[in-house]
Design a protein around this nucleic acid. Structure first.
Lengths: 178, 178
DNA sequence: ATTCGCATGTAACTAGTTACATGATTTA
DNA sequence: TAAATCATGTAACTAGTTACATGCGAAT
């Protein structure tokens, strides 16, 4: 059981998903490619933490929907109370930002402007996602007893992060003297 | 040449370092264990992007100081202008936050309180680091022409991130109803 | 015509972690 | 006397990425 296994189980608590769907929604919690996800799902099924159902489709390829089992939920509950492993962030952009004195102004400005555009796009998508969660509920954010509470606050956190990134990039650009 | 190679070269632009020293300061830019760093440094030396000098010490084990070469600097300069690979964050805590509805209040509160303590410690250390950089210069933050500018703004960004994490955790705790 | 979305999987590789190995000096 | 700091390295493993493989339908 590694972090990705727990992340997959966690996503399936909310609703049953196919591997393809998981690969997309996992992005927020634990980035992973489908080539890592599919074999792990098979392994978790073998361990009876998940069950699978084949769904035949017309016009589209068939899919396998995974459901979390009671055993899977039990393992998740026990895991929550253990200390989380320290977060890992790896960002090439930071290394490049560190190297500002080595490069020329136009290159650096392009680097930062591209970063702002990237994060503005991310932040807008995030706003829409949050709006969607609010609409699915009563129009306001889900409370702590609601099943979507965890999802909402995590997306909220990501939005905060994205907006802070934009603000920081703009601050650096003003320091560089626009 | 992978991201870690560039990160190592970048650290050595600022000042020559031993592998041991690099393992510590790299934390901010690209987390890596010494077992990954030492062999890579040897490889970069083989490729003539670094040169090494053996320094004999008394009372402490001898060390190898690495210096970046002109070829190393050239490779770095070319790399800066290329689009950075997308940032990767993997954080078990987020999965656990997502699972709030599955767990009980006391467990969740402990989880968030521990997180706050962790990030408060990190933020305090970061404040001291920034203060040190300011003191090394003229007492104010280094300007964009200064060699420590890149280092300063990156630590500043990390501080921002740490403070935002604390604020978010506190917000979640109030939602849970203290 | 070509790219995108849907959908699942494996093979080969690279990146990163944990554990093993050594050993003196300082601090709690 | 136990643990931490300094210091470098290798071996064995796990985690993660890229590339290979297939194929239909819809949109551009």
């Amino acid at each position: 059981m590694n972090s990705l296994s727990y992340a997959l189980l966690a996503m399936l608590v909310r609703k049953p998903c196919s591997g393809y769907e998981l690969a997309k929604i996992m992005e927020v919690f634990w980035q992973a490619k489908h080539s890592q996800i599919y074999p792990l799902l098979a392994k978790l099924e073998e361990e009876a933490l998940l069950t699978a159902e084949n769904v035949e489709q017309t016009g589209k390829p068939n899919k396998k929907i995974y459901y979390i089992t009671d055993a899977g939920k039990e393992i998740l509950k026990k895991w929550i109370s253990k200390a989380p492993s320290p977060p890992v962030t790896r960002d090439e952009f930071l290394i490049k930002a560190f190297l500002i004195p080595l490069s020329d102004k136009s290159t650096i400005e392009r680097l930062f402007r591209d970063r702002i555009l990237l994060y503005e796009t991310k932040a807008e998508a995030r706003q829409r996602k949050l709006e969607t969660i609010r609409e699915e509920g009563h129009g306001t954010m889900p409370g702590p007893e609601h099943s979507e509470f965890g999802r909402y606050i995590v997306h909220q956190r990501k939005l905060q992060l994205e907006e802070a990134e934009i603000a920081w990039c703009k601050w650096v650009l003003t320091l560089l003297g626009d």
